[in-house]
Amino acid sequence: MTNRSEIKALLFDVFGTVVDWRSGVARDLRPFLTRQAIRVDSFEFADAWRRQYAPAMNEIRSGRRPFVRLDVLHRENLLRVLTDYGVNVSSISADELDELNRAWHHLDPWPDSVEGLLRLKRRFVIASLSNGNISLMLDMAKRAALPWDAILGAEVVRAYKPSPQVYVETVEILGLAPSEVCMVAAHNGDLAAARLCGLKTAFVVRPTEHGPAQKSDLHAEQTWDFAAADLNDLATQLGCPT
């Protein structure tokens, strides 16, 4: 049984675990797609944009490309998806593309996220450990009232999850031992990488992150230290008061 009294800090994946990226991006896409007369469903476009996420980061993880922040990758991926849908991107102003790219800064939390984080914050240090860059995370936190004690992750250590460097150096920044830190994520792969670095792990199920037909991450695929229905459930399991 996991000794929860040893845990001093919780690190959170953000996209999908704390915020609903798909609905937020689709919402901001709708007026843009209408203005540009692009005949594609906004959720379909959001999914296509997100599918470019991992391949773009793999270029950096592999060493084929120097580190650039996620805002840069998102904008490049946006141009790629627009082109795939037959859009002449040169006909769209840079300002409009920049504004659309900021959809990732405007995401809404899942209904339990803020309450759950506030409960967990009373007992633990809580920090983001996201592939999102700092300005993106700041904008999102301000809009969604996410009460982080610190914003950490890819831009701080100049590497993208699930590279071991991200977890190891973030724990070092906090001045803690890996066993004193718990990674919280809705993605089994993220937790597997964190566990290999000595962190404790907590799985939070988000069965509609990828929409109603989601097939991945519907359950804990390993015996993680904690498995929770949402962040309030995790707070209860960790002994945080309501």
Rank of each mutant, 00 (worst) to 15 (best):
R30K: 12
P31Y: 10
F32S: 02
L33C: 06
R35T: 14
R39S: 12
R39H: 11
V40D: 06
V40A: 03
D41P: 02
S42C: 14
F43A: 07
E44A: 15
F45C: 00
D47V: 03
D47L: 14
A48Q: 08
A48V: 01
R50Q: 06
Q52I: 00
Q52E: 14
Y53E: 08
Y53N: 10
A54D: 07
P55Q: 11
P55E: 04
N58E: 13
N58C: 00
I60N: 00
I60E: 00
S62H: 03
S62L: 11
R64Y: 03
R64Q: 12
F67H: 09
V68I: 15
L70D: 10
D71T: 11
L73C: 13
L73E: 01
L73N: 10
R75A: 14
E76G: 15
E76F: 12
E76S: 06
L78P: 07
L78C: 09
L79W: 02
V81E: 07
V81G: 10
L82C: 10
D84L: 13
Y85F: 15
V87M: 01
N88T: 10
V89D: 01
V89K: 08
S91D: 11
S91G: 15
S93R: 00
A94R: 14
A94T: 15
D95Y: 11
D95N: 15
D95R: 15
D98M: 10
D98Y: 11
L100S: 04
L100E: 02
N101D: 02
N101C: 05
R102G: 04
R102D: 01
L107P: 03
D108R: 10
P109H: 03
W110G: 04
W110K: 03
D112L: 03
D112W: 03
G116R: 03
L117R: 06
L117H: 02
L118M: 13
R119L: 08
L120W: 01
L120V: 01
R123C: 00
R123Y: 02
R123I: 00
I126T: 04
I126C: 00
L129C: 12
S130V: 12
N131Y: 09
G132V: 08
N133Y: 10
N133M: 07
S135R: 10
M137I: 04
D139G: 05
D139P: 01
K142N: 15
K142T: 13
K142S: 13
A145F: 06
A145L: 13
L146H: 01
P147M: 14
W148D: 05
W148L: 11
G153W: 13
E155Y: 07
E155W: 11
V157A: 03
V157Q: 06
R158N: 14
